[in-house]
Amino acid sequence: MENLAFIPSVLILLTMSVNLIIHRWRINLILLALQYLAVFILASLTAPLSLAIIKLIIGIVVSATLFITCLEKKAFEDEKVPLIKYIYRGLASLFVLTFSIAILNGFQAMLPIQIPEPILLGSIALIALGLLQLGMTNAPLQVLIGILSFLSGFELLYISLERSVMLEGLLAGVNLALALTGAYLLLKDEAEEVA
């Protein structure tokens, strides 16, 4: 049963890695929603369901907002890059994943309370791969996915440490505001400012 808890962690590793390697908005946003589902399952291992479900609802709203925005955007082309770039990104994500697994025990030792390993793995992977994604691209959608993943990783860790409804509400607000900012950045080039 304990090993089953690793399934959402593995789902996080897979979704993040694919999002890092392939930049196709439909795939990226579906995987982002799946990632939020995995975060919700992991969060529900330690936090009350009423608190953990906020992550799922916000995740779906955020993914849907970005999806609708991309649908609205005219001529939103998926990235076309040479194969070597995919290989490079794949190797980089593999390196970061290995690093995340390697530091798992050391990180746990630094924390004064015991956090279940699947949660810790999911959280570190989201933070590390999110940061990697932020360092590899300037495209607004990919940057947004990177920031949202990085924040989800932190939220997953934080919900195991402290449970506050007010804090969860504010974090949900930040996620929503990030999605709206992303939507603005994606669509603004097509609009004209009226001075």
Binding site: N138, P140, L185, K188, D189, A191, E192, E193
Partner: peptide
């Protein structure tokens, strides 16, 4: 980054 302007890095 106002509307109509390119988003800079």
């Amino acid at each position: 980054s106002p509307k109509g302007e390119e988003t800079n890095t």
